[in-house]
Each structure stands twice: as C-alpha cells, then as structure tokens.
Write a protein that binds this DNA or RNA. Structure first.
Lengths: 317, 317
DNA sequence: GGAAATATTTGTCCTAGACAAAAACTTTAG
DNA sequence: CTAAAGTTTTTGTCTAGGACAAATATTTCC
C-alpha cells in the first residue's frame, strides 16, 4: 500500500449498518437480505468504498417491522413494497387464534396495562401476589402460561415494544425462580434433564415446566437454554436421567424443531425418554416416534403418572 | 416433474448434518466452513443428491474441538490438518494468563471438583453457604467472579464439558437471583438500565453487576440479555434512566463489541451515561469516548460515588 | 532490546444461478 | 358445499470461486 493513507481509510458513515449487523439486529439471514434485494428491490442498501452493502436506519427499521409481521404469519412478498404506514395498518389483521380456545377470563387484561405502564415493581408484586393466592401449580398454568401467549401475541400485533417484553420476561423469571428455590426438593423418579435446543432462547417455558414437574415431585436438573444435541446426550448419560425434557416456544420454525428432535431421538439411548413441550407443538399433526409431545402444561401430571406406572411395571414385572 | 417420484426423494442418511445445522452447532459461519474446505481441505463433507454438503459426525466433532481451541487463542491454519488426538494434546498449551493476576487463593480449587462431580445439589448449597458467610457484595466479587473466569478457562482447556458449564451457570444464576430478590429495593440515583447487546448471551455478568449495584443502593432495571441497540434507546427514554449498563463476557470479539458500543453511544442521548463492564474490557487499550469502562466489579462502588458527586454538582451548581 | 515495515493468515463479503419445501390456488370427486 | 388431489407461486437456503481488509506473525532496522 502507498503511504497516502493519511485520510481515515474506512470511516463508515454515521449509523449505516453493514449486512452482518443487520442480520443480527433483524434476525434475517444475509442470504435472505440479498435475495430480497434481487427479487423485490427491497431493501436497497447503499454501497461503501468496497462495494459492500450499507443499510440506512430507515431500511433496517422497516425490515424489523416486516420481520414482526412475518412472525405473525404474513409472507414477505406482499410486505416489502408497502410503506411503513401501510405496514402499521396490517398489524390489526394478524391472526389471533394461535392459542386456540379463548373467551376465558384472561390474566392478560389485568397484566397488560402493568407491562405497558412499565411498572416493573408493581408488576412483580402482582405476580408474587397471584403466586401466593394460587399456589405454584395453578399460578403457572392459569396465569403465567396464558400470559406468555398473550404477551407474545400482543408483541406480534405491535402493541408491545421489544423492551417491554424483555422486562416482562425478566420479572416472571425472577418470580418463578424464587418460587422454585423455596419449593421442597423431591427426589422421586423420574429424574429429568431440562434444557432447550440451540436456537431456542426462551427460558420461561423451561422454568414453567420445571415448576410443574417440581410440584409433582419429579427430580429436575436444568441446564438452562441452548444445549447442543451432542451435549444433551453426554449429560443425560452422565447424570443417569430417565427423561430429557425439551421446551419449545412458538418463536421457532416447526420443521426445524421436528428435525432436531428426531435427530436427538436417534442419538439418545432408547431407554431414556424424550418429552417435548411448549406452545410450538399445539398445532402439530403427526407425532414423532419415541417422543412424548406435551402440548400443554396441564397434562404434565398425567404424563408423570403414566410414566411412573409404566416404569414400576417394568421394574417389578 | 414426472410422476416417477415413488422412491423417497430426499431421505437424509442417518446423522449426517447439513451446513446450516453445523453452523448452529459449532458456531462457525457457513462462509467460514466453505472457505476452510477450499483452503485447507477440511472439513470435507459428503454431498447429498442435490450436491449439498452433508457433514458426518466425526467432522462435526473435530470442528467443535477446533472451535474450542480457537476460543483459547489458537488459529485454524495449524489445527485443521491435525488429527483429533493431536488436537487433544494442544489443550494443555493454551494461554492461561487471561485474567491476569493469579496466585490468589482461587475459589476454583474448591468448586471445580463439585462441578466435575456433577453434584448440582451440593454445588448449590456450597454457593448459598458462601453467600451467607460473605454477604452479597463479597460473594460476587470474591467467589462468583473469579469462579466464572476459572470455569471459562477450564472449559477452554477442555477440562469441562459444555453441559457441566451449563449446569454451573444455572446454579449460580439461581443463587444470585434469590439473593437479589431478598435484597432491599433501593430507589437512590442513579437509575440504571441493565442488559447485554445481541450476541452476548451470558446472563451471569449481568446478574453480578446487578448485585453489586443493588448493594450500593442504585436502582436497577434489568431487561435480561440481548436487547437490540434500537430497543435499548427506546427503553432508556421510556424509563428515564440515568445510565445504561452493558455486560460483556470475553466470549465475544473485542472489535465487534467496541463497534456496537460506539454505535449505541451515537444513538443514545448524551445526557444518559453508558457503563460497559465485563471481562472483555480488561485487555483494552484505548477507551471509547463517552463510555465508562468497568474492567472489574471491584470498581463499581467508586464509579457510583463518582457519578453521584458529579451529578449532585450538576444539579445544585 | 523495541519500533516500524512487510508478509501471511483469516473471516466476511460479493455475484448470480439453482432447487425443494411450504403456501396458495385450482381442479376434481363425492 | 366439503375434501382430497394436483398445479403454480412464493420463498429460503444452498452452490462456486473471487476479492479484499483486518488481525496476526515475521522480518528489518535503529
């Protein structure tokens, strides 16, 4: 290189975002961003001195909105060439039926204002209060679970900001962990290893499951979120667990999740059960062989009972 | 298409892994995997019917080991053409000086056996005991922080499995959250918004910071990990915080972290401070303008005091 | 010894084409 | 009118090989 590089060589203009960063911020893969540009003409990033894409903030913002509408079930083809204003209007049209049954007195009505008002303290106290009132089991099933669905939907419809959802998660997690810590530690069978697969970040599903299981006396060992399949196999072996429990929020693609579970089933010793739970499976048709699907927290006690019956038979027969 | 597609079209052979999954499992980008194949001849995946790469498990395993050695500072060029056995030997040669000062009576000696023995219950009791004995502040600074570093190093050297580290994290998190819940909730200035940037998953750093800050009476609001810059800005505004606190483990590249912090500084109102903490910054030379770097939890009280002094001056002067 | 210049290594980005899975739409049968 | 079966469109992910700058290692010079 010559010595004429006195001028700063690559001072990226203020706030323009490279493709890698856009991928991280929007969750849209680099390949996807490029193919949209080719097909739909949006996004249309500027280019820096090296011919590399740089995205102005408005485009990143619009991508974010599109992503959100897509999470609600819309397809990009119709979205990319709409204006931001037009996109905002479409939030109302999002399908709401995700959870299924409605009409019940949802805790959402009570809690959503608290989340919206950003009253972290009040929110936490209300949660703690409901926990006291209902007991851990009912609190999880009747309050936290539907609340989660509701918050997810509200977010999808654009009624909540990301940070409001983050704050909510944090409070719920705090309350649940506290409750778990004070719950008596049982050591009845089955021994369970709880975790999520890589890509699934939501911890709350895991905590809810742990709570329901702990209440029923099962011995839980949680690895936290995102354990690679290989390490789940190793851990299950090392800790001699009877069952591996996996949690899936509905924020993940059904196909991928299915494939991952099938893969794990292949790698894991047949004597170890796999229980796959979470909102994701509620819409599923065909089950995976050798895997118990738990579409709702309600059925955990039944699944446990069944396991214990089968297992005691196997042992004493 | 003809109707001769009676034979199953694309039954992926058992346990072979497509490039997307390898990316998720090893953390190596698709581009990187392809460029290594071109340059070094490893990995050398098979091809499926469509000419797409499928990786056999041994290669994925080796990639995982390589990734681990690279996290310890080695470079791929020398690693990719070594056998698995040769790679194992190199774990011993990893640089150990990361933390800097050593020779202190490390809690690692006491705890590592517990983690290794997979005694979740004992581990948690020991942590709780030390918490009682030392108080939250000292517990965090003298036990959890060095323990974290030690566990990270042990993992890097191949002395711990991923699932052992996961289990450790989960226990520590539990104990810390419990302690935080029972700590009195102060409402003294400054108001802090705590979170991590996208890509930084480690929650423990965040919790440690929260603990140290809570002890000093600062009002903390944690959003949990991985809040996009845009949402940090919105949240800081909505909650009228004085300072945004960010935690960085050393598992992230310094350059990217720096860029992200600089970017946030640009977007955030100048009246709102940014405190960037975590193991990552201990090796840093030049600070970022307008950002307070907190290389160690020790200095949090001092930083708080300083902020309070400056701020009271500003208000009453 | 240490600083400066040079060389190598390495990750990320580029283009533009291909194809299969999923979704939407159309047709056919009961 | 519903349901199954077939067709078309939409969409994401994969491919190849080239390019380049940042990071790291090595040599040269004082």
């Amino acid at each position: 290189m010559s010595k004429t590089t006195i001028a700063p060589k690559r001072t990226k203009p203020l706030l323009l975002t490279a493709i890698g960063r856009v991928e991280r911020e929007t969750g849209l893969a680099k390949d996807t961003l490029r193919v949209w540009e080719r097909r739909y003409g949006f996004p249309k990033p500027l280019r820096d001195g090296n011919g590399e894409r740089v995205y102005p903030p408005e485009q990143v913002e619009k991508l974010r909105v599109i992503r959100r509408l897509m999470d609600g079930g819309m397809r990009p083809g119709n979205l990319v060439n709409a204006t931001l204003a037009q996109l905002s209007e479409r939030f109302g049209a999002l399908r709401v039926e995700r959870g299924g049954r409605s009409g019940e007195p949802s805790p959402l009505l009570e809690y959503l204002p608290l989340i919206r008002a950003r009253e972290a303290g009040v929110l936490q106290r209300q949660l703690a209060h409901d926990l006291m009132r209902l007991g851990l089991q009912r609190f999880v099933v009747d309050v936290v679970a539907p609340l989660n669905v509701g918050v997810g939907e509200a977010w999808t419809r654009g009624e909540l900001e990301v940070y409001e959802e983050h704050l909510y998660s944090e409070q719920v997690q705090h309350v649940l962990r506290q409750a778990l810590a004070s719950a008596p530690r049982m050591t009845r069978a089955p021994r369970l290893l709880l975790t999520t697969l890589p890509g699934e970040q939501h911890q709350i599903g895991l905590l809810m499951a742990q709570a329901c299981l702990a209440v029923e006396g099962a011995e839980c060992l949680s690895l936290g979120p995102q354990t690679p399949a290989r390490d789940i196999v190793l851990a299950a072996k090392a800790h001699r667990v009877d069952v591996v429990g996996l949690s899936f929020s509905s924020a993940i693609r059904l196909r991928e999740a299915r494939a991952a579970v099938v893969d794990l089933r292949k790698r894991l010793d047949r004597s170890i059960g796999i229980w796959a739970g979470g909102g994701l499976w509620s819409g599923m048709k065909e089950p995976v062989a050798g895997v118990t699907m738990i579409a709702s927290l309600d059925v955990i006690p039944a699944v446990l009972t069944q396991w214990r019956e089968q297992h005691s038979k196997a042992v004493y027969a």
